[in-house]
Design a protein around this nucleic acid. Structure first.
Lengths: 186, 186
DNA sequence: TCCATTTAGCTCGACATCAAGAGACTTGAT
DNA sequence: ATCAAGTCTCTTGATGTCGAGCTAAATGGA
């Protein structure tokens, strides 16, 4: 089989250099739009559709990685938020809301289920009798630490496609796009 | 207010050049992990957490853009899949499944609701009496076209942070990461 | 001190999704 | 012709999320 029979894309860098790269679904998506809507400039899709699709693939991959540690992605999110908080590994439900971007009803449900599994425990907040503190148990911390290590291994494998320099470049470009969202609260 | 008081990050490119860039949430996330787990190499998060977070921001932004055309994101997905198919803008529910990556129960529900809104119609498949064809109505096509134009405007604004060359670079780097998922079916 | 306002976390009903499986029809082998 | 296996769509039941509203407690001004 020659490379001609694969899904490839030829990038004409200059008159003598042609880079042959693998096509992806977004190349096909963009090609379809250019055929159906030649009047529109669909260039933005080249970047942002790839971001969305890659995120979907990552979600699936992460779900698999976490499954090896009997954790759902949402469980990982909550446990690691507590883990990152540092000793004594406790946050209020309200702080967990803002970190995980879910609503309060959802967080109550999540804490209930994590407490039932013995990964977190609810404590009364000594300084505010309305309040509750959610604390990571020893087992919760172990599970979070193990799942994080597994996740990083998997992500390293995905990123092996790129050189160290390319990863740095990619991170910097993405930071330019995310910074406005993160700093000017949307 | 000086730049010192903002959330910034200093990248020491060489001994005489220091690039000052805006920090984002991932910088803070990575810093927290390095503090709590100095034993781990968390470099992969610099790229992949940014991808996931940016995708989340994009989802929210898209939801807003579509709302101006009274469309939900899922409605846009289905309508544009039909729109990209070209004349006569019809696909089977099965084809729609594979394009939108939802289950058949979900797709039945979506087609029901779109049909009730008059944006698509169900037709019997003339070549297979088990089958159904879903066809875009004239109004469905208009709404899809308008929503796409709105989406592209919004995405262009987000990408204005980058130069044309940077956008090309970013697209190429992302393609390298997505191609394995898209070509070696996961 | 009193009372209105704000804040914290929880409850509950509505809703979209998924997974499993049923029913209708087609395909291909004998 | 017949029948088993495969395909296509829809139905059903369980689950997780959201969002509105509730109660209890803290806050702050008159």
């Amino acid at each position: 089989m020659t490379i001609e029979r694969m899904d490839v894309k030829r990038l004409h860098v200059d008159t003598t250099t042609t880079l042959i790269v693998m096509e992806d679904e977004v190349d096909r998506l963009v090609a379809a739009w250019r055929r159906e809507r030649p009047d529109l400039d669909v260039e933005p899709l080249e970047v942002l559709s790839r971001v969305s699709r890659l995120a979907r693939h990552l979600d699936r991959a992460r779900r698999l990685a976490f499954a090896e540690h009997q954790l759902e992605p949402w469980e990982f999110d909550v446990l690691t938020a507590l883990r990152r908080a540092g000793t004594p590994y406790q946050l209020s439900p309200g702080q967990l809301l803002t970190q995980t971007l879910v609503t309060s009803g959802t967080m109550t449900n999540r804490i209930d289920r994590l407490a039932k599994k013995g990964l977190v425990e609810r404590l009364p907040d000594p300084s505010d009798r309305r309040g509750v503190l959610v604390r990571l148990t020893a087992e919760g911390q172990d599970r979070a630490d193990q799942a994080l290590a597994g996740l990083l291994d998997q992500e390293r494998a995905i990123l092996a496609e790129l050189s160290r320099a390319q990863r740095g470049e990619l991170a910097a470009l993405l930071r330019q796009l995310t910074a406005p969202f993160d700093n000017i609260p949307g």
